[in-house]
């Protein structure tokens, strides 16, 4: 059916002038009691860690950038995967881990095939405290398959990237969308892949990763109080 006719039918049913803009509304997004909460970075980080771990996500706390590299190195040694893959060099890495990736001959997205990797290494754009969620924006060298294919997802996140609410993260994505920079694919990840489709028996790693390990860089410099309003 033609788009114009389809929409005209809807407008006619609603008794509306087709395509006329709605009057401004007050109820947009989360209620004020939620959107206007003031929290400190310390509180946001604590909530994020508790929520993410409650969802069977794993967190490794790293005091500085060297610690992030050491932890990644140790993780690759312990996991000893048959094959590992990571975002390409041009991707927005929160911490420079090139040395480690080179030492372990990790396959780089865009240069070699990652469709059979067992461990995938990426950065993230945000952590969301309310839901224990990692937000991974993809595009270019930050391939989407890098974290969807493997059994283990290693994610690097800076503490200063942790926001309070989904609304806070969405507000920043929306800012990007205004300049037409919103990526084609953004993934909100809250722990490992799960299903209870077999006799209600909770199980992990059905299609996505069975382990999600977040290497968290504690880079908090000061207690910044932020709200969605400040971020928009």
């Amino acid at each position: 059916m033609d788009k114009g006719a389809f929409l005209a039918n809807i407008a006619a049913r609603l008794g509306r002038e087709p395509g006329s803009a709605p009057a401004p509304r007050d109820a947009i997004g989360a209620p004020a009691f939620w959107a206007d909460r003031k929290t400190t970075q310390e509180e946001r980080t604590a909530t994020f860690c508790a929520r993410f771990q409650a969802l069977a996500g794993e967190i490794v706390q790293c005091a500085d950038e060297d610690a992030v590299r050491e932890c990644l190195d140790r993780a690759l040694r312990d996991l000893a995967p048959g094959s590992a893959g990571a975002w390409g060099r041009q991707a927005p890495w929160p911490v420079d881990v090139e040395d480690v990736l080179e030492r372990w001959s990790v396959r780089r997205f865009g240069e070699s095939d990652v469709l059979d990797i067992e461990v995938g290494i990426t950065g993230a754009s945000f952590g969301v405290a309310d839901t224990g969620t990692l937000v991974v924006e993809t595009g270019g060298a930050a391939g989407r398959t890098v974290h969807q294919i493997p059994l283990v997802h290693l994610v690097i996140l800076r503490e200063s990237q942790i926001v309070q609410s989904l609304g806070d993260a969405l507000a920043q994505l929306r800012g990007a969308a205004r300049d037409a920079r919103m990526p084609a694919y953004v993934h909100f990840i809250s722990g490992p892949s799960r299903s209870s489709d077999i006799e209600n028996d909770q199980t992990i790693g059905v299609h996505g990763p069975a382990r999600v390990i977040c290497l968290l860089l504690r880079d908090r410099t000061a207690d910044v109080t932020k709200t969605a309003g400040d971020l928009a």
Partner: peptide
């Protein structure tokens, strides 16, 4: 409390 994956696909 939250879904495990929320995927936002904005075009091809």
């Amino acid at each position: 409390n939250t879904i495990t994956y929320l995927s936002m696909i904005t075009g091809p």
